[in-house]
């Protein structure tokens, strides 16, 4: 069972670092950004390109993060900033278009086949649970970047400004907080975090242009479980979801019910993620007052 916990933590870390960006942009702009997950994929490809150009991996990830942060700011300047006033669902549709465009461009440049970033990692065994040095780096990096985000949001002036914008945008702006500039900063941070998350997933597994469609549902499920606009809720959501996915598959329901061993087939992992998302959304406190009360 310890191994199940380890697996959950590793997968949860991969999801969490991407999920926080969606929660951050949602908290300020009420904008569930589908393109955000594509930023993660672009980050992975940027890291790959960096290593091909001879950069060490850490430097490649850093450069990728800055580039994708810039990309997120650019996309905002070209598209999203012109559409601040439209309904949240309209923004979601536009972001889908942006994601589709970026995905197709990535596939045109790098091809549709999967790409591997070669790494060497060693196996570590702790009390019956096995993981790799890379897993450890991924988890530590996630924890590190979460702490960093926490420090940024709660212990810097810019962070406080972002939180003020999140809690009441108009009020914050009238109090003199430069809304537009802070939004650009927010996009840069979310883009960079997405790129780091995407690079870590790429190192752990592989890169393909449609990777965003595969991690879309788990990431959105994590953000939803965490309450959509709560940055650290998204992290908790990622780990809760990951644990649920791993535990449901690992439990012998057959024996529990007194019969032959029976497990939930492992391909139901996605199913669990989507189901969790729907159930949380249906049960969450009402977001509109029923008009026909």
């Amino acid at each position: 069972m310890l191994q199940v916990l380890v697996n959950s933590i590793v997968y949860g870390s991969e999801i969490a670092i991407i999920a926080v960006g969606i929660a951050l942009s949602y908290s300020i702009l009420r904008f569930a950004n589908f393109a955000h997950i594509q930023y993660a994929v672009v980050g992975g490809y940027a890291t790959y390109a960096g290593t091909k150009l001879g950069l060490p991996i850490v430097a490649a990830i850093a450069v990728g993060a800055v580039l994708v942060g810039g990309l997120a700011v650019l996309v905002d300047a070209l598209v999203f900033s012109r559409l601040r006033a439209i309904a949240p669902e309209g923004k979601m549709i536009v972001s889908w278009g942006v994601a589709l465009f970026i995905r197709a461009i990535i596939a045109s440049v790098f091809g549709g086949s999967a790409i591997i970033i070669e790494t060497s990692s060693s196996t570590i065994q702790v009390g019956g649970a096995i993981f790799t040095s890379l897993d450890l780096i991924v988890v530590l990096a996630t924890v590190g970047f979460m702490v960093l985000l926490q420090l940024f949001l709660y212990h810097t002036r810019h962070g406080s400004a972002l939180r003020a914008l999140a809690s009441n945008y108009d009020l914050a702006v009238t109090r003199g907080i430069p809304g537009d500039r802070m939004i650009r900063l927010m996009w840069f941070v979310t883009g960079a975090y997405a790129a780091i998350g995407g690079s870590l997933i790429a190192l752990e597994t592989r890169l393909q242009p449609n990777m965003d469609l595969i991690i879309l549902l788990p990431v959105f499920a994590a953000v939803t479980i965490g309450g959509l606009s709560n940055v650290f809720g998204a992290v908790i959501g990622a780990f809760v979801l990951s644990l649920a996915q791993n535990v449901v598959i690992a439990v012998d329901f057959g024996s529990l019910l007194g019969g032959d061993p029976w497990f939930v087939p492992s391909q139901f992992r996605d199913y669990i993620a989507v189901l969790a998302m729907v159930v949380v959304l249906v049960l969450r406190p009402a977001s509109v007052r029923p008009a026909n009360a």
Partner: peptide, 9 residues
């Protein structure tokens, strides 16, 4: 009970 962006999801 839910606004349209939640319902969309």
């Amino acid at each position: 009970r839910q606004s349209q962006d939640y319902w969309a999801l």
